[in-house]
């Protein structure tokens, strides 16, 4: 069997898509770099003018003084704000008739996510959500192998995301469960989405998280066990408990006829062991595992093609709503001491 890699993005089509980036934080910078690599023009807005200027200047793009000004100047709004603010920005953008690209998770609550989808439908615009793991070559290749029948029907999945604690200050929105949804909505959601992509919809989930089981411990680690409608079962582990500069992903997909294994520790194309830890660290970065193409660039290029050329992307807002529904169920289980949460069968929007 041949595994073909997802293609490198075509060069920009030259139709002059104008992107308005909202939120000039960490992920905003990642998106901006990807857009610029695609040669696409970007305008930046952030509620903090100093932050938007800093980011815009670094990439030589312009700043919008207000969200309204950004909406006037662009075709697509790319939302990179804190999670709990996704909905208000998205709904404002759709009302202005703009397509929306939104960083994962779709929203902080299901009601917000549903409102975003309804608003996009009503306005007749695209709503696309950056479940970026689907654009990581190892994940995309594994999914393609499963679809091609390489291992038969998926039976037992084990998905691991082992990270050090994010470097943000303790009062950052990232660590505020009401704003970010914590480790389950922010980190585990990557593999919850991948589990759905490979083994189909999930009918029940049980999850435990150190944040709720050991609230005083200052360590965050969560594990979920999923049962899919197909009968497949998944073990999903997400951690911020590892040593500084750790960023490892691993998965195993066992099927009726075979097994797929992948571990980023063994597949990084470049390993760095530098004397000056301050320079760029000892560790292999996620990007070293994806030298064939920046996954964010692949993602945003595919979304741009969807908007410009009406080519269906591999994931969209309705899909992301189901992943959010699953992540929220896992969070609910974790908050109720691992009780099994059932998801409505075929709960599509």
């Amino acid at each position: 069997m041949t595994i073909t890699r997802p293609g490198a993005p075509d060069r920009p089509s030259g139709t002059g898509l104008r992107v308005g980036l909202v939120g000039a934080g960490f992920i905003g910078g990642t998106h901006l770099a990807a857009w610029r690599s695609e040669g696409i023009d970007v305008v930046v807005f952030d509620v903090d003018p100093a932050r938007s200027s800093l980011l815009a200047d670094a990439f030589g793009v312009s700043v919008a003084p207000t969200l309204e000004a950004l909406l006037v100047a662009t075709d697509v709004v790319d939302i990179c704000t804190p999670t709990h603010l996704h909905a208000s920005v998205a709904i404002a953008a759709t009302r202005a008739g703009r397509h929306v690209i939104c960083e994962k998770p779709l929203a902080r609550t299901l009601a917000d996510g549903e409102a975003m989808l309804a608003a996009a439908r009503q306005a007749g615009v695209r709503l696309l959500v950056g479940q970026v793991v689907r654009f990581y070559p190892e994940f995309a290749a594994a999914r393609q192998a499963v679809v091609a029948g390489a291992i038969g029907d998926p039976a037992v999945l084990r998905l691991t995301r082992a990270n050090s604690r994010p470097q943000q200050a303790a009062d950052h929105w990232f660590f505020n469960h009401a704003r970010s949804g914590g480790i389950i909505l922010d980190l585990m959601i990557h593999d919850l989405d991948f589990a759905r992509w490979v083994a189909g919809e999930v009918v029940s989930v049980a999850c435990r998280s150190a944040a709720f089981e050991h609230p005083g411990a200052g360590v965050d680690h969560a594990v979920a066990i999923l049962t899919h409608a197909s009968g497949a079962i998944s073990h999903v582990s997400a951690s911020w408990a590892y040593a500084p500069q750790t960023s490892r992903t691993a998965f195993e997909i066992a099927g009726s006829r075979g097994l797929i294994e992948q571990d980023s520790d063994r597949t990084a194309g470049v390993e760095r062991s530098l004397q000056d830890v301050g320079a760029s660290g000892r560790a292999t970065s996620l990007a070293d595992g994806a030298l064939g193409g920046d996954p964010f660039r692949l993602e945003l290029a595919e979304f741009a093609r969807a908007i410009e050329a009406n080519v269906e992307p591999r994931t969209d807002g309705a899909d992301a709503l189901e992943t959010l529904r699953l992540a929220l169920a896992a969070d609910q289980s974790a908050r109720s001491a691992g009780q099994t949460i059932r998801l409505e069968a075929g709960a599509g929007s």
């Binding site: 029907d153 039976a155 037992v156 066990i225 049962t227 079962i233 066992a254 009726s256 691992g338």
Partner: peptide, 14 residues
Amino acid sequence: VEVYAVANRILHER
């Protein structure tokens, strides 16, 4: 004190 488990019969050609 508490046990949760799931299982299936898909592996090895079902």
